[in-house]
Every structure is written in structure tokens, then in C-alpha cells.
Nucleic acid binder design. Structure first.
Lengths: 242, 242
DNA sequence: CGTGTACTTGAGTGGGCTCAAGCAGGGTGG
DNA sequence: CCACCCTGCTTGAGCCCACTCAAGTACACG
């Protein structure tokens, strides 16, 4: 089993070696030999926007490493209606939360086209068990996620905080990198994140556009981006009545 | 280093061997010998109700294993005011979220008298590094916490859901075991969890008492318990207009 | 017995929800 | 190319739940 790395071209299968995420993802801290043995059953998949990766309540058969695009994790509340609890981007792993329970906690829906590596759950389990360094990495990641969710809780969904402020906070989190471009999710999604109605979010954003804090980029409704006055948004986000 | 276990009586220090939590906590999956070496620097502490175990933003010097009582984790939001993001009970570990960052994410306040084992952070770190089984356990725990927080998000703080419903859901989570007794936190705490005002929570609970879904136990305000009609509360929690 | 803390209750207001109509753009089929 | 619809968004009118402000009560403690 000592074929050269270059030989590992995988038809329909993922190629961890060519992956630019190699050092930040699951694979990091793992030797190349192990990786060769590991990566065999991993599928390299493409999901169109809107498709469902897995559904809450179903058996968790795999985890997905996101290599491109964004995914929303939706959780049904005690009375049935859905709530977005997290958004996954490049480098995130979907399905980790079912690692031990075996049952999906969330429904995962692709927001954009998504490229992901699908790792069968039992395979993943075995692999983790054999690589302590990986365990630490996953633990660290889990804690990161926890921190993220904590601030969603305190920043985004406090009813005590006015809709306008929370919306500004969310928009700031949807920046692409450090630019002033902002991902424009469908209203329904923004509403499901903030716990507001579509109408309220629409009004709030329209107001901001009128004030010039936000600018529509392009003109069609197809444009999934806004341009934002970051300083202005930040002021609003801190309740400084911009 | 082979003194008998019984000899290890620790003045002011914790005694893991006598601990009834031995098999559910950090210590589980670890050999007794390792434990002897490990437990030396662990302090066995008692915090009175209301005291602060650690403060958000400060350096994380230790983790606390809760052996008795309850702790609230409070997180300051982007504009300064505080929000309760989690409640820790027996068997939970406070401070885990600073394991990698080194900085406390939350302020931890004792809700009741709290008995905890204080494990210095660097010590904890070393110990984890040497015990893979422990890593897996911590990972599992971290995921559990994540699940917990997710349902706080979807069940408790959706503004879309009326205050009455959310309050019922929270009360159900504050049951002691499977009984009909319910921990009665101060109004201010309930409000900070639900993202409501004290007045609203007070009115909601008073209504439930009038309807008989809740019953005050004892009479003084010192009583930190209620008795609840679980079926009734469950109905309300599911929006079935009970 | 007075003071403080926690809770209760009331009156009035307002932010965000509901219901509902209207609009834009982008497909699709004729 | 236009007519059509369909989905996503906007905007308005009215209402109601929960907030605000404020006064009042009950118990706990010194």
C-alpha cells in the first residue's frame, strides 16, 4: 500500500491531498498514510441550493465537511415550527452533534450550492477513536461552536433588544470577510434566525436602505448581496441610535 | 506510591474516591493510580448562594466540577446587558468553554450553595492530553451541552412564541427529577433566561397559579419551590391553549 | 418595628404581529 | 415576444401582547 500520493485520483471520490482545507479540517494532525486508508470511503458531493442534506429525527449516517457554500441548521421547536439555530460555512462540519446520539438533531438545508465531503458515521467514529490528536481538535471545534451559539443567544434573539438592533447585528455577522459586502439571505431565513416575522425584517431593512446604512447592489431581486456602512451598522448594533 | 485508598483523606482537598460522582465525572475511565497522582492539587470548595465563581473576560485559571447546587452562566451581550445562557447542575463542568481560549466566556454565579471541585486549568490540560478516553468523554459532554443550548434557542427564546408558552417550557425544565416539584428561581433570573421582563413573568406565573396549573408550596417567599400540574404545563408548552 | 428586597398589580403606551393588498422580476409556455 | 403565474418582497391599517412606569404588598432581617 505504498502508491504515490499523486496516483490517488478519485473518480467521484474526494481527494484530501489536493484539498486546500487539508490542514484546517478533520485531516489535520493525521499522517498521510492514515489518510490514504481513511479517505477511501469518503464521497465528494455537490448539493444544489435548497436541497436537504439530512433531516431532524432521522438516523445519522454520516458527517459532512463543508468545502464550499453555506448550510442552515434548522431545529423544530417544542410545538413544531422551525427555527434556524446555526449557519455552517466552509470548514465547518455538519452532523457532528449526532456523533454520539446517532440521531440528527437538526435538518440541514443548503443555502447556496454546497460542496461537501461525506464521511460515513461508523467510519468517522473508528477513525476518531484511533487518533487522539483528532479528538482534541474536535473538542476544540465543539467548544468554538458552543461559543458561537452562546452569542447568537445573547446578541440575536433577546426579545428585550429591539428588532432594529438585532437585525443590524445579524447583518454584521453576514459580512463576506472584512469587506462591506453582506450576504443577503432570503427574508424568511433572516426572520427564522432572529425570531421575527418577515414583514418586520423587511420593514427594518427597508428603513436602513432609506437611511443609506445599507445599499442594494445590482437591482434585480436575484442579487444575493447588499453593501453596508459598517460603522453605521455597528453603531446601531450597539444601540447607539444611529 | 501505593498507599491504600482509604488513607487518602484530604484536609480541604477533594477525595475523588469517596465521591459518588466518581463514575460520571471527569474521573471516569481513568485508572485509580492516575487519579491518585491527579487529584492532589484539586480543591474542594463551597460557595454560598450568590457568589461569583469566575467573571466573563477574566483569565480562566480553573474548571469547576459541580457536585452540589446550581450555577447560572451569564453572558454580556453586544450592548452590555446580561443574559443567562445556561444553568449548570450536579455533574456539569463550569469553565470548560475556556479550555482553549484561556478567557472566560461567561460569568458564573451560584444560584444556591454550591460545592465544587476546582481543578487548575494547566493541570486539567495536561491530564486530558494524557488520557484519550477522557477526551472522548469531554467531546461527548460538549456535544450534549450544544444540544441543550440549541433547544434553549428554539424552545425558550423565540419571540414568535407567546410568553406564556415559553414560561411553561422553562418551568418544565426546572422540575426536580421526575416529580411535580419545580425549582423556583428568582423572577429576575427567569426573566433573564426567557428574555422577558420581570413583570411579564410575574403576571404569567400568577395567572397559572390562579388557574391551578401551578401551586405555591409553603407560604413564605423563602420557598424556592412550586408544585406544578405537569400535564397542564405540557399542554400549555405545546400551545394547546390549556 | 423599620428598612430592604422580592414580588404583585395596575394603567397606559408602543413595537412588532396579523391580515391583506400590491408590486417586481423571472420563469415558463404559448 | 407577450401573457401568465409564481415566488419573494414591500407596504399599509389595525390590534394586541408585552414593555414601561409606578404604586403597593408581603415577607425577611436587623
Amino acid at each position: 500500500m505504498s502508491r504515490s500520493l499523486a496516483q490517488i485520483t478519485c473518480k467521484g471520490r474526494s481527494n484530501c491531498f489536493a484539498c486546500d482545507l487539508r490542514h484546517t479540517m478533520v485531516c489535520a494532525d493525521v499522517s498521510l498514510e492514515d489518510l490514504v486508508a481513511f479517505h477511501t470511503p469518503i464521497d465528494d458531493l455537490v448539493y444544489p441550493a435548497g436541497s436537504v442534506l439530512f433531516r431532524a429525527g432521522g438516523a445519522a449516517t454520516a458527517v459532512h465537511c463543508v468545502r464550499l457554500g453555506a448550510i442552515k441548521l434548522v431545529k423544530p421547536d417544542a410545538s413544531g415550527d422551525q427555527r434556524i439555530v446555526r449557519i455552517l460555512k466552509k470548514n465547518d462540519v455538519a452532523g457532528m452533534e449526532s456523533l454520539f446520539s446517532g440521531i440528527n438533531q437538526h435538518t440541514a438545508v443548503a443555502l447556496t450550492e454546497v460542496h461537501s465531503c461525506r464521511i460515513p458515521m461508523n467510519h468517522f467514529h473508528n477513525f476518531i477513536a484511533q487518533h487522539p490528536a483528532l479528538q482534541m481538535r474536535l473538542l476544540e471545534r465543539s467548544q468554538e461552536t458552543l461559543r458561537e451559539v452562546d452569542s447568537w443567544l445573547s446578541d440575536l434573539v433577546s426579545n428585550i433588544v429591539p428588532a432594529r438592533v438585532r437585525t443590524a447585528r445579524l447583518l454584521l455577522r453576514l459580512r463576506v470577510g472584512d469587506s462591506d459586502r453582506i450576504h443577503r439571505l432570503p427574508l424568511a431565513d433572516l426572520a427564522d434566525i432572529l425570531g421575527l416575522t418577515q414583514e418586520t425584517v423587511s420593514r427594518t431593512i427597508s428603513d436602513m436602505i432609506r437611511e443609506g446604512v445599507l445599499v442594494r447592489v445590482g437591482k434585480g431581486m436575484a442579487s444575493r448581496h447588499l453593501r453596508g456602512d459598517i460603522a453605521g451598522l455597528t453603531a446601531i448594533a450597539q444601540r447607539e441610535e444611529a
